[in-house]
Design a protein around this nucleic acid. Structure first.
Length: 141
DNA sequence: GCCAACGTTGGC
DNA sequence: GCCAACGTTGGC
């Protein structure tokens, strides 16, 4: 089981929309970055990830589950781009802000801080547990 | 809305 | 294969 972080601008695709998509989930399309794509290729069914609101909110608001392995992104004809399917798993009761992440020395190596612009990021198990604890999810799912 | 960071593109 | 130009992202 691995952990990830997905970034989305809420006016394009918000946590509310992700939840409304229900248990069937949606494809995480639109990623046009090799590193982010490679991260998605490495995902396994049942992997969990944080759902982060960029630009507005700037906080981790939910947890998703990978429910479909990487496959071609149907929003482009370019065969290079792939995406996974994800579905909402649960809310983060107390959203964890970027500010709070940056202020926590235990999270200083987190990709959210060091690779700010990467849209699909790996999260270590320690980081996962720490962010869940900050968000009011203890034990971590 | 600005601007820094950084990934991608394309000419050589 | 290098590197400058360009476009996009995302925090502020």
């Amino acid at each position: 089981m691995a952990y990830w972080l997905f970034k989305s601008e809420p006016h394009k695709w918000s946590w509310e929309k992700q939840k409304a998509a229900g248990s069937e989930g949606t494809q995480w399309d639109g990623v046009r970055n090799y590193l982010a794509r490679n991260n998605m290729r490495a995902m396994q069914l049942g992997d969990k990830g944080f759902f982060y609101h960029s630009n507005e909110g700037l906080e981790i608001v939910g947890i998703i589950e990978v429910c479909g392995l990487a496959h071609h992104d149907t929003t482009t004809d370019d065969p290079r781009w792939e995406c996974v399917d994800i579905r909402a798993f649960c809310d983060v009761p107390k959203p964890v802000t970027l500010k709070a992440v940056k202020a926590n020395p235990a999270l200083e190596k987190m990709a959210l801080v060091t690779s700010m612009r990467l849209s699909v990021q790996p999260v270590t198990e320690d980081e996962w547990k720490e962010v869940c604890r900050m968000g009011g999810l203890d034990p971590a799912p």
